[in-house]
Structure formats: structure tokens, C-alpha cells
Design a protein around this nucleic acid. Structure first.
Lengths: 215, 215
DNA sequence: CAACTGAACTGAACAGTTGAGTTCAGTTGA
DNA sequence: TCAACTGAACTCAACTGTTCAGTTCAGTTG
């Protein structure tokens, strides 16, 4: 019944280009109009025949899945991850944390696309239960491990006192990135001034609780 | 062309019951299957003829709007608002804050429906731009004023030192309710133990930053 | 209490549209 | 030469919204 009965997707360099164009156009289309956007519109946006789309992906759901999983392993974390790693060597912990937080939050803010995609997934959860599960642990908060490692390192150095690491990680996320995710959900964006106050204020608050009592 | 040309919706006690049943069923259906659910399914769920649905609401979009606006002024905040008001008279600020936070967070957690509805609105923003605007300022974080008043009161008493009220409010939200909203977005729920640790840990963190330096 | 009235409701069929996925004959390009 | 691609026409299912003949029911009148 489905198109994938014994058919393997096209291969070769030409096919790869087409595939890329399709995913790109599909992502834009989904972001612009939601999951309800027509396959014809996507094909047209990719400058490709609808048949080609189906030869590559077999179904709309598979295409959507491809878009999401592709967005899933976007670099998003690379800049902020390196910023977090440098934390151990920093002399002035507060300044270093504020800097790391800035690049981190900025990565989230400039990738509103990813947040919007998450909303799509959330809204279509009933259609894509696996995607919902796959999205957990990824997305903008996808590098828990990096944050965990950074915090653990600082704790081992004795520069932070963290009795409950899991809670602390969530709190750091909550103070720094969750506001942008929550407000971004309806298209509201947090303005630059407030963003900066949330960063410095969040770091200060985090340090005044977990930091050494040097204050 | 539309059905509302010169037609007013039915009135009277019987009609009111039907209308209520329709909105209720529509809400469940939308939550269960998303906006794509068929009107026949909604009518069946309400135990009502499809014609009755159209006599009452005229269109699917109008019905969806009715569901959302009805959810908009749900009491959600009443319990937590009163809990927040009692804060000024409390002797033990930490205990009182933790208690207030518990009822507040619980209100949010048990109203996951409302959060899920918000996701629907976000996903269908292009179809309902007005709804998106109406939803801002409401929803689970809809009682900013109550929180603002409570914090201001404590600051005036000298029991908290809050240089930037707006930031402080968002931080309180971030520490206590945002995690449940973010994780709840894909159906993941925060388990009871973590919830409790987030509450106490969040309050402690908040107080260690804004509270008097008695620590 | 019986007959009546009229608005609201039912059930089923129907019209019109949209969109997913397919078919196919023909074209492009390494 | 062969796999990939195109374009257009097509099927098929689902969905929104409508129509209509008949039914329910609260309230009114005699």
C-alpha cells in the first residue's frame, strides 16, 4: 500500500543534491505553514517534481521525520559546549559563566527555528510518538552531558557546592534558556535588555546558591 | 457564503446544555488528536448532531476559538493566588514560600491540558493570529500581577531585596513552573521527587539571592 | 389534560474541495 | 545505456459545510 514496498531511495551525487533541497524546502514550508502544508507546495519550493519527493521519502510523515531528525543533530551546541568546557580553567568564575551563558543563550535565541519545530512536533505528537521520544534529550537543551560535565568539574575543584546535580542542571537551564523557549512558543521574543538582565541575574543567583561563601 | 449569514446561534436552556457539551467534547477531541480532528468526531463525542454544532458555532475555526477562549479564563490561578497573598503575614518566609510554590506548581501540573492547548494554538498560529495574541498574558503564567504584588509586598517589608522586579518575577517562574511547561510540551512529566526537589531547591536559590543576608 | 406551537435537534444524504499518493510517457544527464 | 527526474493527469479517501424531511420538547392555550 505504501510506496516503500521494495523500493529503495535514489542514490548518487545528483540524488543527494535533490534530497538536500527537498529537506530544506520542507523545513521552511513546515515552519511557515505547519504540518498541514501540501506536498505540492513543498515540491515546488524545492524546485523538484512531486514524484521525486516520493521517490526519496515515500510519505509525508517520513519527510517530516527526516526534517526533524536532521534538525535534531544541528550543531547548536558546539559553540556553547566549547564555552562550557573552558569554564574549568577560568580564574574569574562569574565572568566566565556569564560569557558562556551569553553564547549559549544566543545560540538558542538565534535558533528560534528549532524551537518552532519543537512546537510542531509537540502539536503532532499523536501522529509521531517516536519523534516525541527522540526529541527528548536533544533540542536546544540537548547537551545535558556537557553541562553536567562542566558543573561536575567545578564541583570537583571545590569552586561549587552542588549536592543535587540533576536539580542544579535543570535550574541552570531554567534560569537561562527556558524563558526564551517559553516566550518563544507564541512568537513573543525577549528583548535584548531583558535577556542580558536574565543572564547576569541568573548567573548571580546560581552562584549565590551554589558558589563558595565568599560573598 | 458562510453559514453565519443572518443566522444567530440558538438560545434557551436546552441550547446552553448542548453548547456546553459541544465545547467540552471539542476540547477533548482537539487535545486528543489535534486541530485536524473531524467535525463528525466532535459531534459524535458530544452526543449531538453535526448540524447542531454548525448551528451553534458556524465553523470549525469558530469552535476552536470558543474552546480556547473558554480555557483562557479558567480559574487556574485562584488557589495559587490566595497562597501567594498569604505570604506577607508569614513568619517563616521559606516555609511559606515553599508551601505557596507547591500549590502553584501543582495547579500547573494538574492543568497539563491548558499547556497542551497552548501548544495547539502555537502550532496553528498562522491560522489564528488573534488567538495567539489573546493567549499571551493568560495561560498558566497568567497571574503575573499576583506574583508581582506578592514580591513587591515582601520587598516593602524589607524581607526581600529586589533591585529588578521584572527579572525576579521571571526567575521565580523559571525556577518553579517553566520546567513543567517545557518538559510537559512533549508529554514528558516531571516525577514527584524531582518536582519536590525543584520546589525546595528553587525557593532556596531564590531566597539565597534575594533574601536578607541571614545565611 | 389534550391539543397546539415553534424553536431546537436529528440522521442521513449530498456537494464541493483538498490533499496524499500513484501512474505513465517522455526527458535529462553521467 | 540506465538510473533519476519531470509534468500532468489521475485515484481515492477524508473533510467541511449544507440541505431537508421528520422528531423532540418546553411552554402555551383552551
Amino acid at each position: 500500500m505504501s510506496a516503500d514496498s521494495g523500493k529503495q531511495p535514489p542514490s548518487g551525487p545528483r540524488a543527494a543534491l535533490k534530497r538536500q533541497a527537498i529537506v530544506r524546502a520542507a523545513r521552511e514550508a513546515f515552519l511557515r505553514e505547519g504540518f498541514g502544508v501540501g506536498m505540492d507546495a513543498i515540491a515546488a519550493g524545492a524546485g523538484v517534481s512531486k514524484v521525486t519527493v516520493y521517490n526519496h521519502f515515500g510519505s509525508k510523515e517520513a519527510l517530516f521525520t527526516a526534517v526533524i531528525t536532521e534538525a535534531l543533530d544541528e550543531p547548536l551546541g558546539s559553540a556553547s559546549a566549547t564555552a562550557l568546557e573552558g569554564l574549568a580553567e577560568a580564574e574569574d568564575l562569574r565572568t566566565a559563566l556569564v560569557d558562556a551563558a551569553r553564547t549559549w543563550v544566543n545560540a538558542v535565541r538565534t535558533n528560534q527555528d528549532v524551537i518552532a519545530l519543537r512546537n510542531l512536533v509537540a502539536a503532532e505528537l499523536h501522529r509521531f510518538p517516536e519523534l516525541g521520544r527522540a526529541w527528548q534529550g536533544h533540542g536546544p537543551e540537548g547537551h545535558h552531558p556537557a553541562v553536567a560535565a562542566a558543573l561536575r568539574g567545578l564541583a570537583d575543584q571545590g569552586r561549587l557546592v552542588i549536592p543535587d546535580l540533576e536539580t542544579a542542571i535543570i535550574q541552570l537551564y531554567a534560569l537561562l534558556v527556558f524563558p526564551h523557549m517559553v516566550f518563544g512558543a507564541y512568537g513573543t521574543t525577549v528583548d535584548d535588555g531583558l535577556t542580558e538582565r536574565l543572564i547576569t541575574g541568573g548567573v548571580d543567583m546560581f552562584l549565590s546558591h551554589y558558589g563558595p561563601r565568599e560573598r
